[in-house]
């Protein structure tokens, strides 16, 4: 019986074909094997959202997915969200609205927002708050984060304040 698993995972557009320990979590594969340390480990208990990545375009918590489960899937981490040297619109909005302080939650927060806006391009304030239920920020008090997302939600009322 094998304690490892063969996987083919496309990470930030690059196909990875490798064997991983069956018990290796996706977050560990991304950080330790691929060096993609933009994905953070916060609580390690499916709560804080710092490890959020896009799996086939949807936000998931990579501390609660085995790398083996991502076989055949496409993963986007914060490093792969926009071409090198440029910012994704969500990243730009976070910068413009000062939606971060220490920055530890930011990669996960940004990817959660990308997933949210794909599903609800016209997200209301209530949608935004619900859509970020799974991401904790201990610095900002969330207000500038919500302002950043609101600035991107098409059709949402823009708050000049």
């Amino acid at each position: 019986m094998s304690l490892t698993a063969r996987v083919r995972i496309r990470v930030n557009g690059e196909l990875q074909v490798t064997a991983v320990p069956a018990r290796q979590l996706l977050v560990s594969y991304l950080r330790d094997d691929l060096g993609l340390t933009g994905t953070k480990i916060g609580c390690d208990t499916t709560s804080c959202g710092a490890c959020t990545v896009l799996l086939n375009g949807e936000a998931v918590k990579s501390c609660t997915v085995f790398a083996a489960q991502a076989d055949g899937d496409e993963v986007i981490t914060i490093e792969g969200l926009a071409p090198a040297g440029s910012l994704h619109p969500v990243q730009r909005a976070f910068r413009d609205e000062h939606a971060l302080q220490c920055g530890y939650c930011t990669p996960g927060m940004v990817l959660a927002v990308v997933s949210l806006l794909r599903e609800l391009p016209e997200a209301s304030d209530a949608d935004i708050r619900r859509g970020l239920d799974g991401n904790l920020c201990r610095c900002t008090g969330y207000t500038p984060i919500i302002r950043a997302v609101r600035s991107l939600a098409a059709g949402a009322a823009h708050d000049p304040g």
Partner: peptide
Amino acid sequence: IGDPQVRHR
């Protein structure tokens, strides 16, 4: 249930 990430899995 949970949060969006949990509901995706």
